[in-house]
Amino acid sequence: MSDLSLARAALDVSPPSGLGAQVEAMPLRGMVTIRGDLGDAGFAAALQAATGCAVPEVRGSTVSGDTRVLWMSADEVMIFCAWDAAPGVVATFMEKAGDAHVLALDVSDARAVFRVSGEKAWRVLAKGAPVDLERMEPGEVRRTRIATVAAGIVRTDGDAFEIFCFRSFSTYLWNWLCVGAGAESLSDL
């Protein structure tokens, strides 16, 4: 029974369309933070059991069905999954990890996710992210800043990027993305 739609808090600006980039607020998504020794076989087995995914390479992500495991740091991954699947992922991982020194937390409500897609999507993000987005590989994860907000960017496929940030910044970032995608300037970029 979740009732706080993230888009609800973020409707100060309407998302523009037809300018080469679309911005969407994604519905609630299951998210799990897991920390531990990513190189450990037991960790990999527990992650596989919980998500069906292998441990991703540095700054990469692995996908199985609608579950994606994102490399966040040397000892941390983030799991994107269905919202109601997150508790199960935590439980399965902790059970399989046994006595290993790990941490798995359901953080499905901590962050907001936006999707920016289209031919000019990377140009919208390049207005505030100091990252070579044009050369980002599909599946690549990049934690950086957008304007002054800490954000993660994953190139999900082709022209599409998913952006995640702490939920309290979602109104700001939504507005920021919409202003950037709405500028008629995209035509000459």
Binding site: R35, G36, V102, L103, L105, S108, D109, A110, R167
Partner: peptide
């Protein structure tokens, strides 16, 4: 052997 996580916004 300590791991931390900031869950401020989860709750």
């Amino acid at each position: 052997r300590v791991l931390t996580a900031n869950v401020t916004e989860q709750w």
